[in-house]
Design a protein around this nucleic acid. Sequence first.
DNA 1: GTCTATACAAGGATAGAC
DNA 2: GTCTATCCTTGTATAGAC
Lengths: 214, 214
Amino acid sequence: MAKQYKEGKIRQQHRENILAAAETQFVKAGFKGTSMQAIADAADLPKANIVYYFGSKLELYAEVLSSIISRWNSVLDTASIDDDPAQVLEDYICAKVDLSIDYPNASKIFAMEIISGAPNLQEHFRSDLRAWFKERVDLINAWISAGKMNAVDPQHLIFMIWSSTQHYADFETQILAITNRQEYEQDDVKSIKRFLCEMILSGCGLTPSGRHWA
Amino acid sequence: MAKQYKEGKIRQQHRENILAAAETQFVKAGFKGTSMQAIADAADLPKANIVYYFGSKLELYAEVLSSIISRWNSVLDTASIDDDPAQVLEDYICAKVDLSIDYPNASKIFAMEIISGAPNLQEHFRSDLRAWFKERVDLINAWISAGKMNAVDPQHLIFMIWSSTQHYADFETQILAITNRQEYEQDDVKSIKRFLCEMILSGCGLTPSGRHWA
DNA sequence: GTCTATACAAGGATAGAC
DNA sequence: GTCTATCCTTGTATAGAC
């Protein structure tokens, strides 16, 4: 029993190390471009152990992808017509900015997967995401009908929130190089949130509370 | 002479085919993940010819990248303090949307390169782009000082324009899957332009003319 | 000038030793 | 349960035939 427990811990530790190493490597070279050897080196384990723990490169990648997606349940999920759109949108934008700053690799791997044609995400698109998207579009349309916000196109609004927030993760390298910085600081995050909320909400005829950055 | 001319044409034709094939493959698998064999198959040429025409995989990739960047001279380049910010921003946004729709692969390869840490673009960042960016920031600040537009952060404004326009190229797969379409149509492009111009300009206290979509 | 044949390293995955 | 040794495929690049 004691032995099993200890071995279980080693196993779990190794799996976590491998997942973390894999994330780093997939960001740098994409799925096809990443070698098991590179992951093994980064995890400081023999190459064959990666296969031993995850079965195959594709299964390892699938685990990385699904752990990314599972982290993306957000404030928009529970919003309803009775809520205040200004508050919901502001919270959603700030939550997405936080995810981009705190887990840039997650956003990057997801982005690369989609750019490459999303060969491993078609299922996710056609089932979960499409339904999620339709419900949010309906919600925004309901707010518009209720006169709670301007009549902007809900689909494009969601795309704009996704793109403008994720950009700070995906294009981190470019942004930091252009602005001559090493990494984002607290003040940067606040000014990002402030800019995005003010721009997007004002376009919807709404006013942000500012509680995320004031 | 006649022979040389004809051979020159073959050479040029093959180079173009290879560049086009390479673009497609780099999008699907990234730089490291793309094999010369895959490019050769797509270009319908023997594998060794790719090396023959371009020297190496990296040189071929460098040519693809630089041809992408050279296409991105845009309306913002020639704008000055005397111009109307509403008009300049509207033209710039619509030009970027057109690029995203017409050359999605260019945007995708550029995005992948940056997501992977931009190992082949550091030079471009530190020289051209940083200077370009600084000048545009100064221009927008000048417009603000002159009372021509709201005092929004110029850096984030540029990032928002980049992200929200490029999103329609880079995340094409996701957008089409979610909205259950095969490809963008004329009307889609117009509604994208309209949405982005209205949102972004209104956030700057400006009003678009609408001539790109009306 | 163009393409075939091939060299040699690195890829993913397996079998079996420890 | 973990890791070493190895198999076979695929990778880039070259040498030399056409």
